[in-house]
Design a protein around this nucleic acid. Sequence first.
DNA 1: TCTTACCTGTATCAAAAGGTACAGGTTTAA
DNA 2: TTAAACCTGTACCTTTTGATACAGGTAAGA
Lengths: 208, 208
Amino acid sequence: MTEFDQLFKALNITEKSLQEKILKVGIVQTVPKNSFIIEQERYIKWLALVITGKVRVWQENEDRQILLYYVNPVHTCVLSLSATFRDCKSLVNAKTEEETIIVKIPVRYVTEWSFEYKSWNNFTTNSFIFSYEDLLHSYKNLAFSKIDKRLLDYLQSESKTNQTSFINLSHNQLAKEIGTTREVISKILKQFELSGIVNLKFKEIELL
Amino acid sequence: MTEFDQLFKALNITEKSLQEKILKVGIVQTVPKNSFIIEQERYIKWLALVITGKVRVWQENEDRQILLYYVNPVHTCVLSLSATFRDCKSLVNAKTEEETIIVKIPVRYVTEWSFEYKSWNNFTTNSFIFSYEDLLHSYKNLAFSKIDKRLLDYLQSESKTNQTSFINLSHNQLAKEIGTTREVISKILKQFELSGIVNLKFKEIELL
DNA sequence: TCTTACCTGTATCAAAAGGTACAGGTTTAA
DNA sequence: TTAAACCTGTACCTTTTGATACAGGTAAGA
């Protein structure tokens, strides 16, 4: 199964003529680990769809970062999507966390197809909806939850998505997900350990 | 000019057949000040479009609130929009701040039309895009800015949208916009006054 | 007029989060 | 094997934010 077939299947693209167009203008690209897909303040020329791998999308300040979301197979970064509808600079950064295969579509087709093909329309609409709700959820968390709660939520959701109770991230990496500093994470993790919620090892956190 | 005409004009709806459909299924409703349009955890049956007036959309916890956005003429609440695409409970509250005239469209048509009519498609897509970017902006602010900065930003943007340097809100109301408590707002405003940034009167803040 | 509800200012204390500093562990690659 | 880069733990202090409490002002309606 080619990358395109995977794409068609995942997005439910059954229209033959759309498939042909995608085959014609889409570009399959293998992006090595830790490469930037988008950088804050730069223009977006392609819509990138992740076929395999994982892309981290975040925002940053001078000295802090905060995670927005991960793009997993087979999804797209909603912000490139949004950017494709109007020529503008990216508000975020996106970087591969593993070797990642993407399909790139030039932005001009994205809008066109969304009115022409039902499946493409569904894809774009759903991307917006789910991303919006996801961001809304993060916003609420940020507004109302203390850091310890947010950290625990993060660990639990990591554990769940990776099907393992071991989380292999440094305190520094966690700080950049949550939007705080390393020391704060270390302190809270230590409290968690004393409360019997986790086991701490070097670069490894076990959820109990 | 009827409410519908205003709607057609604002959303650039030129297709005659869509206009007819909207006239047929749309309902014009005058909602008094301080009425709920949507409540958290309740199902959404209509897409509401604000023709005149103002609707506040927020999230709340047990004891706190935080503003999401205002819906002004002629826009819609993106969250009702998102909800119309999939049957689900509302994640937010929406309440009129003034007497407000809305046009209600039953949810089932919203999706249908978005594929059938270019103008409607643009409307829904643009709503998603702008709302997403707006929320993203708020998220970044919340993550990286202290309360004083956020308060000042809020005051300045209020002043700008209302074309006046006087903001007639109580400290309590401000606290609910920013997501903090009244005392914190009072303290910061007092600092602002000492720094010569504002003048404080009863229920009135003048930006200098 | 009086009551009631809401508004503002402020002092004090407590908790949450961040900054600085340092000691020592682990990994990697030269 | 050694240096460099990164990791963890922790102590101490500061700033930010929140909670509690109280005094007194303002507005609106009975």
